[in-house]
């Protein structure tokens, strides 16, 4: 049975993982974090969150928001901190 219009008017909004992922991206970008470099996508039955952030504290903050926004979903995270070492070689441009 199609339940598209089964809910009461003014009831809870649909909570499919796609919308929740979109809301997560919105919150990461526009909130205090200002984080545009973390990408979340629905893959199979889970959500994959990837990206590189400037500090361990920033990563902790991102992961806390992910837990809040995607609670109850199967989430895999791979958020790493930027590498700040000197390069070990140069590129020769012709």
């Amino acid at each position: 049975m199609n339940t598209h219009d089964a809910g009461p008017a003014g009831g809870a909004p649909p909570a499919g993982p796609e919308y929740r992922v979109a809301h997560l991206q919105d919150r990461l970008a526009s909130g205090e974090l200002g984080e545009l470099g973390v990408h979340a996508e629905v893959r199979g039955g889970a959500v994959l969150v990837t990206g590189t952030v400037p500090s361990a504290r920033c990563r902790d903050e991102v992961l806390a928001v992910v837990r809040e926004e995607l609670g109850g979903l199967d989430v895999h995270t791979d958020v790493v901190v930027s590498e700040s070492s000197s390069p070990d070689h140069a590129e020769e441009l012709s």
């Binding site: 930027s82 590498e83 000197s86 390069p87 140069a90």
Partner: peptide, 14 residues
């Protein structure tokens, strides 16, 4: 920086 994975990259321009 997330792309180059270093504090900077160096390019030698002739």
């Amino acid at each position: 920086q997330p792309v180059i994975g270093r504090a900077f990259h160096v390019y030698h321009l002739p």
